[in-house]
């Protein structure tokens, strides 16, 4: 799977269109709130799981097979 320029443009257009719809429906909320939430949430999740849990909890695949 490759992400070419057209795909990225489509994604940005989707983002703009949905944000505009959000603004029209409710101008008081920040239209990109959940996009930012997704970005930060994903970073947080990767950081916590990969950074912390993986160092503490990750083992070789045959961990339980060895007695």
């Amino acid at each position: 799977m490759t992400m070419n320029r057209i795909t990225w443009i489509l994604l940005v257009l989707t983002l703009i269109a949905t944000s505009a719809a959000s603004y029209r429906a409710d101008p008081d909320t920040f239209p990109l709130y959940y996009f930012v939430f997704g970005v930060l949430g994903c970073l947080l999740m990767l950081f916590i799981t990969k950074g912390v849990a993986k160092k503490l909890l990750s083992r070789k695949e045959d961990y339980y097979d060895r007695v």
């Binding site: 989707t14 949905t18 719809a21 959000s22 429906a25 990109l32 959940y34 997704g38 970005v39 949430g41």
Partner: peptide, 22 residues
């Protein structure tokens, strides 16, 4: 509803951008 649809599209979009980067 607009807010639900927008939210359902924006969260995965944000997630995807970060995934693609890493």
């Amino acid at each position: 509803r607009t807010d639900l649809v927008v939210k359902a599209i924006h969260i995965p979009l944000g997630t995807f951008v970060v995934f693609w980067f890493f």
